[in-house]
Design a protein around this nucleic acid. Structure first.
Length: 610
RNA sequence: GGAGCCGUGGUGUAGCGGUUUAACACACCUGCCUGUCACGCAGGAGAUCGCGGGUUCGAUUCCCGUCGGCUCCGCCA
């Protein structure tokens, strides 16, 4: 790979390139030729993207990873090359030797960066032919995604996909550059590790050497990076592959990548500062400028005002609490909700009275799907509030509501009542729904926010126990430690999430580096010392051998690339992603294996195998 | 585990409140064309309408099931 030119380094002298027939080695990149290259003799390598055969003149758009350039073949000047050009088809791989020249006036193509010039092809070598592609590469975005994945190597030839993966590469390199400059060490951790309880479902790998036992693929390098802190590496990072066997979504794949960071002798502020500087640097790669420090919002405030722990701050539509106002209301549904410890929440859609009756009914219909008990709407007119529940409200109540919510005539008010958390979440979903429906999200906005002061623990109704909101190694805030035994749900975590445009980009925490605090957390979680030892014994033990205070953060790399690439699914920024059912149409994974293979692994199949 | 949407030549779609030669565009093949750039013109080939079952004289069309894809809920420490 010695003397070939690299994209991004125009002007490098390539090999001479034209010495004798059969010389096909590249001396220039298609997409980088400009008017200033006119007169140059070049050798191009690439794929036939388009061909326009005029009978007496053939145009080829030649594509390599740098872009497109037009090549012309003229039978008068280069009869042999012309005859070969007649045989070209889409996606043939060719080498062209020719001369760069200005196009005649009026013949320039302003749509192409290379549109001022073209290459007069003198010598043409077909390096590889191609079957007719199963889809037209130009139109791939509208092609069935299953087909794109089955022929992913063709899909990836498209400039959009190349651009995405180039961006991904640049962001990864920028991340390394940023962290290297700050004294971080890139250290790999095992992919074959031990299954630990809590968290997502593990992918398991059977052990051949120890019948009946299994490795697990890591859900994250969490425990290892903490051990590396105990080891004294002080600053670690890894662009780490993680595995979680849960159902897929547009932004969730069973294997994904995170930027994983851990630091010793730091407090919350240190990690947050580093984290936001990193993200600001990466956003800078796509020319998005971010003002630091980033704003912060507490978990409680986020849930109240936005109904989400990952609030989208690109638009307003804030939720307001009107519980007090309805505590003594004539509308019994709301009054009872408040009396039983619940809340009433309101959201004002300015000018929302233009919604049709049908659209209002749709809101009411959707509310239960968002987890609400119901939804009440009110249309603000000049004098009164028009609403199905208007007759239950006193005039004073109406006035108070209008005043507290600063309602203007023509506004729509939406109300929900019920237990605090589910009402908040339902209002949050309503908020997003209305924002999308009314196009309230301005394009080109980048709203980053830290969410802090998460509760350390939450109640899992299904399992009838407390569980960690982040993970069991997150430390409680110092001032809340004593609440662990008495009011565990009020304990705030030393944790922080970074949210971009309503997408959770990453999160982290300061860990428990003292065994006794860790044990108190386990106690609150209802994990006995024996159980803790059995499951996390190696970490607890490590904490007894001089563990420094430490903490870290991890960012979802795929999601970050997706947002910066302007894509709507992380599949478009992953070279070989899986479908929603976890399959790879290209390789056919997952697939059956032979009985012999299973036998070696001491596995008895429940279903017949090949 | 659940809900919704989709499945018609290679690709993207149309069609059908039951009987048609299943239409259009792109791609493909042949011919013509020296300035196109999603080239153009003329002609051609190409579809058991995802699969299975049901209703019917007759199903691509209606019904049920199933498979696959996508979106979402649950799930994702």
């Amino acid at each position: 790979m010695e003397q070939q030119e690299q994209p991004g380094q125009p002007g490098q002298p390539g090999r001479p390139g034209l010495q004798g027939q059969g010389e096909w080695r590249r001396s220039a990149w298609c997409g980088e030729l400009r008017a200033s290259d006119a007169g140059r003799e070049v050798v191009l390598n690439g794929w036939v993207a388009h061909r326009r055969d005029h009978g007496g003149l053939i145009f080829i758009d030649l594509r390599d990873r740098s872009g497109l350039v037009q090549v012309v073949f003229n039978p008068q000047t280069d009869p042999e090359a012309f005859r070969t050009a007649e045989t070209l088809r889409l996606e043939y791989v060719v080498s062209v030797a020719g001369q760069v020249r200005h196009r005649s006036p009026g013949m320039e193509n302003p749509k192409l960066p290379t549109g001022e010039i073209e290459v007069a092809g003198h010598t043409l070598t077909v390096l590889s032919t191609s079957k007719t592609p199963p889809f037209v590469l130009d139109r791939a975005p509208s092609v069935d995604e299953n087909l794109r994945l089955r022929y992913r190597y063709l899909d990836l030839r498209r400039p959009e996909m190349q651009r995405n993966l180039v961006l991904r590469h640049r962001l990864a390199q920028k991340t390394r550059e940023f962290l290297n400059a700050r004294g971080f060490l890139e250290i790999e951790t095992p992919m074959l590790t031990r299954s630990t309880p809590e968290g997502a479902r593990d992918f398991l790998v059977p052990s051949r050497l120890s019948p009946g036992t299994f490795y697990a693929l890591p859900q994250s390098p969490q425990l290892f990076k903490q051990l590396l802190m105990v080891s004294g590496f002080e600053r670690y990072y890894q662009i780490a592959r993680c595995f979680r066997d849960e159902d897929l979504r547009a932004d969730r794949q069973p294997e994904f990548t995170q930027i994983d960071i851990e630091m010793s002798f730091v407090e919350r502020e240190d990690v947050m500062q580093l984290g936001e500087e990193l993200i600001a640097t990466l956003l800078g790669e796509v020319n998005v400028r971010v003002e630091l420090p980033l704003r912060r919002i507490t978990y409680g405030e986020a849930m109240l005002r936005y109904g989400s722990d990952k609030p989208d701050l690109r638009f307003g539509l804030e939720i307001q609490d009107v519980s007090q106002l309805f505590a003594t209301s004539g509308f019994q549904v709301f009054a009872r909700a408040v009396a039983s410890g619940g809340v009433v929440r309101a959201l004002v859609l300015p000018g929302g009275s233009d919604l049709s009756r049908r659209e209002l009914d749709q809101l009411v219909e959707l509310a239960p799907r968002w987890g609400a008990r119901g939804l009440v709407w009110m249309l603000a007119e000049a004098e009164e509030l028009r609403s199905p529940i208007a007759k239950y409200l006193g005039a004073g109540e109406e006035a108070a509501l209008r005043k507290q919510l600063s309602v203007q005539p023509g506004d729509l008010i939406c109300l929900m009542a019920g237990p605090e958390k589910e009402t908040a979440i339902a209002m949050g979903r309503l908020r997003l729904f209305l924002a999308e429906k009314k196009n309230l999200i301005p394009p080109g906005r980048w709203e980053l926010v830290w969410v802090v002061d998460f509760p350390l623990l939450e109640w899992n109704e299904e399992e009838r126990r407390l569980e960690a909101v982040h993970h069991p190694f997150t430390s409680p805030r110092q001032e809340d430690v004593d609440l662990l035994a008495t009011e565990p749900l009020r304990v705030r975590a030393n944790a922080y999430d970074l949210v971009l445009n309503g997408v959770e980009l990453g999160g982290g925490s300061i860990r428990n580096h003292r065994r006794e605090v860790q044990e108190r957390v386990f106690e609150a979680l209802g994990i006995s010392p024996e159980e803790a030892r059995a499951k996390f014994g190696f970490l607890l033990e490590a904490l007894e051998y001089g563990a420094p205070p430490h903490g870290g953060i991890a960012f979802g790399f795929d999601r970050l690339v997706m947002l910066l690439a302007g894509e709507e699914t992380i599949r478009d920024v992953i070279a070989f992603p899986k479908t929603q059912s976890g399959a790879d149409p290209l390789t056919g994974a997952p697939a059956a294996v032979s009985a012999a293979q299973l036998g070696e692994l001491h596995i008895i199949p429940e279903v017949p195998v090949a």
